[in-house]
Design a protein around this nucleic acid. Structure first.
Lengths: 186, 186
DNA sequence: CGCACCGATGTCAGCGACTGACATCAGGGT
DNA sequence: ACCCTGATGTCAGTCGCTGACATCGGTGCG
């Protein structure tokens, strides 16, 4: 029983997706967004550092899960470490198909938002690299494996988002990894 | 003999690097940058769409060269097409080691600039993919090969920038490609 | 029970990135 | 000579974002 509703943050997230879809991202003012959530512009900026971040709030959770999965993976081989991490992310993405499909067009339509998405991906890459290094792999190998792994995950995820909601992302990821192996190894 | 010096654009580019290094990116005002170049803030924005782009002006040239290299590559195999593109970029990057090392810390210190750099990389990926598709490769394979190829190039380039100016980026790229093949194909 | 403190929010003023509209002015072509 | 073009300057305004300070219900402590 607090004075303020405790879901300010999620109200802002919903208001953002709604308004960005209704009026477009560029045409939506942070003030308008906050008002839709029953808050002030200033309060918005206490929850999110800028106008874009509201669309990427949960990515941090995925990053942590990625690191944890690598840390707890049973085997010490580079390939299986990376795969453990990627699989975990894929598993967690799977139930969010609808949400991501809804958010997709917003991001696709605005370079600013694409940039933000790309830097999240890049942070996954460094996270994955560091987690693999922590398991005893040398830096150079880890950096290469992480970069390639995340790149493949990205391709698989895009394919998955373009398909039906019940398509299996984990399976798609494995296909893509195999495909990449064919391309590079032949 | 025009009324205005024709090198306004390059003056802005030099002023930007200088000031971003002297005072820092965030602390540098576009107005100050333009003044250093003997111009007005408004004029700056007629040459570059925003405060960051001045640091990435020539990337477009590289993108075009990447597309051209793939289009003119002799062999039709996916691997050699991608490799032709990556090699061309690496070759053109080689002489720019000093410049890139100088620009590196600026970009590294500011997420905004990293984002811009990442979206340039992403545009290389789609360019490469489209160029490979134009050579008759199916879309899915091309997308995967382009994503992995650019990711490997990125890793190789970072390694190269961390080393001595005379290190061979093309050779480093080939090493990285081989390394990625080992990782995925084993 | 009262009170002092805390934490989420509101208010206000201000900076800087970016844009649209209009003015200026040398050079080039007619 | 004259008009037109293109790069620039000037001005006003919007919006993202921030620091400083005020507000006020809840919480815990005496």
């Amino acid at each position: 029983m607090t004075r303020w509703t405790t879901d300010a943050r999620s109200r802002l997230e919903r208001a953002a997706v709604d308004l960005y879809l209704e009026r477009g991202y560029a045409e939506t003012t942070v003030a308008a967004l906050a008002e839709r959530a029953g808050l002030t512009e200033r309060t918005y900026f206490r929850h999110f550092p800028d106008k874009r971040e509201v669309l990427f709030a949960n990515e941090e959770t995925l990053r942590a899960a990625l690191a944890a999965a690598v840390a707890e993976a049973p085997d010490g081989d580079v390939r299986s470490l990376v795969r453990a991490g990627l699989d975990e992310v894929a598993r967690r993405l799977q139930p969010r198909h609808a949400e991501l499909v809804r958010r997709g067009p917003i991001v696709a339509g605005h370079p600013d938002l694409q940039e933000r998405e790309l830097i999240k991906l890049a942070s996954w890459t460094t996270t994955l690299r560091d987690a693999v290094v922590a398991r005893g792999v040398d830096e150079a190998t880890a950096a290469l494996a992480a970069a390639v792994g995340i790149a493949v995950l990205d391709v698989a995820a895009r394919r998955w988002l373009a398909g039906t909601p019940d398509a299996d992302l984990v399976a798609g990821l494995h296909d893509a990894l195999a495909g990449a192996g064919d391309l590079l190894g032949a």
